[in-house]
Design a protein around this nucleic acid. Structure first.
Length: 424
RNA sequence: GUGGGCGUAGUUCAGCUGGUCCAGAACGCCAGGUUGUGGCCCUGGAGGUCAUGGGUUCAAAUCCCAUCGCUCACCCCA
């Protein structure tokens, strides 16, 4: 088979059979976030490049090698958003939404783009959903965000997940911790992988997260962030844990968890699911009290999480779980002959106008073929329109789930079908 | 950016130590078995330049090279 065109690398088509699950998950996310008070915000798919440089940090991998950047005809540098929080912050500041109240809570859902080699659970275009809570420093907000993330996964049908939690401190306690860590690592630098030796300069915290066995051995005895929090951070972290416990959300302390984006402070967490291969985090998030200021706004605390829908779908498939599909009952029209077909076309129009889901086969095939088609589509009932029935002003209704067959006057057909199929 | 695996019907795959393979199976699709009755069953049918290009050979889906594509992993993240 010679294909002239294929979808671009790292992108995928959501075919009709899958689109239904997408709709359900999207709907679930919106309705649940709504219950928690997070209102939807939709921002552009591309932004000025500088926004991401500032927001994400110039030394992050995303900025250094993963952005889809282009220049418009006016010579401005634009970038397809690699994540949604930056645009959300921009809109928050641009429209002075902070004026509407001390705490602003947003949810978002939409495509994001990163130019990197695709692999299981990682795409160049993926769908990011998440929430942001701006303006609250309260640990209860951290707990709320995490609770919402977990509730969403739970309701989506993903039961076996693991919530991993850590605190990486704030600008007050982190420098001190950082130098302690560096002192420890410098003594054993020879045992680190080449990559981590480079990290010593740029981002030593990331070494804690390295998967290389030799680094893990070094890191096992390294000082931990949680042991060097300032009193405020320690208190905050303790409160987050207490809140989570009282909400019935169990978690696993992950002292080596550090997230790859510069803007995180205090709480960081991720939710991992089994069966996902190397990319097993379905949701990641945390607190980022410095982000809004970095983007040019007033000092404003924030917490949030972001998840990838494609990854969630993979996890659901691996777990053999997922939301149940619930479709509107289908009425299938099966005309036999020219005159009945003409009537069927008009009937279908009328029925659809009244809200019935109706389909028919225009190919004028045998009744057997039409019934097979109805069955294939999962129809609830077939309306058989033959010359005989029409002559008597009637139609035959065949209920496909074993309910038998009956004749109904054409004059009351639509009302009858509505009553029978729209009641549940 | 680096490394491994793979590209055969709509789908999942078999065939790959070269020769009844100008290629098979299952599922799906179409039709018949029931001159107007689905799902199960039976029968038949359609559907593939074996990713593309080149090479080796009397002979290549099968060996070699290149290109393209997919995939997994590293890096990093959703």
């Amino acid at each position: 088979m010679v294909l002239r065109y294929t979808a671009p690398k790292g992108t995928r088509d959501v075919l009709p059979s899958e689109a239904e699950i997408w709709q359900q998950l999207e709907g679930l996310f919106h309705s649940l976030a709504e219950l928690y008070g997070y209102r939807e915000i939709r921002t552009p798919i591309f932004e000025r490049t500088e926004l991401f440089l500032r927001g994400l940090g110039e030394v992050t991998d995303i900025v250094q090698k993963e952005m889809f950047t282009f220049t418009d005809r006016g010579g401005r540098s634009l970038t397809l958003r690699p994540e949604l929080p930056a645009g959300t912050v921009r809109a928050f500041l641009e429209h002075n939404l902070a004026e509407e109240g001390p705490v602003c809570k947003f949810r978002y859902f939409g495509p994001a783009f990163r130019q990197e080699r695709p692999q299981a659970g990682r795409y160049q275009q993926f769908t990011q959903y998440g929430v942001e809570c701006f303006g609250s420093r309260d640990p209860a907000s951290d707990a709320e965000v995490i609770d919402l993330a977990m509730a969403f996964l739970e309701r989506a049908g993903l039961a076996a997940v693991e919530l991993r939690l850590n605190s990486i401190g704030c600008p007050i306690c982190r420098p001190a911790y950082r130098s302690r860590l560096l002192a420890y690592l410098t003594a054993r630098v020879g045992e680190l992988c080449p990559l981590c030796r480079e990290r010593m300069e740029k981002n030593p915290l990331r070494i804690l997260d390295c998967k290389s066995p030799s680094c893990r051995a070094v890191v096992a005895a390294a000082p931990l962030t949680v042991e060097h929090l300032c009193p405020a951070c320690a208190e905050h972290f303790a409160a987050v844990k207490d809140y989570l416990t009282s909400l019935g959300r169990s978690f696993i302390l992950a002292p080596h968890l550090v997230r790859g984006l510069d803007y995180y402070t205090n709480t960081v967490f991720e939710v991992v699911a089994p069966g996902l291969g190397a990319q097993d985090a379905v949701i990641g998030g945390g607190r980022y009290d410095g982000l809004i200021e970095t983007c040019g706004g007033p000092p404003t605390p924030g917490v949030g999480f972001a998840g990838g829908l494609e990854r969630l779908l993979l996890a659901l498939a691996a777990a053999g779980a997922g939301p149940r599909e619930k479709r509107v009952p289908l009425v299938f029209l099966a005309p036999l002959g020219a005159a009945p077909k003409e009537l069927a076309v008009r009937l279908a129009h009328e029925m659809r106008t009244t809200g019935l889901r109706v389909d028919l086969d225009y190919r004028s095939r045998s009744l057997k073929a039409q019934l097979r088609e109805a069955d294939r589509q999962g129809a609830r009932v077939v309306v058989i329109l033959g010359e005989d029935e029409l002559a008597r002003g009637k139609a035959a209704l065949k209920w496909l789930d074993g309910g038998g067959q009956e004749e109904i006057d054409l004059s009351v057909l639509v009302a009858y079908l509505r009553e029978k199929t729209c009641s549940e």
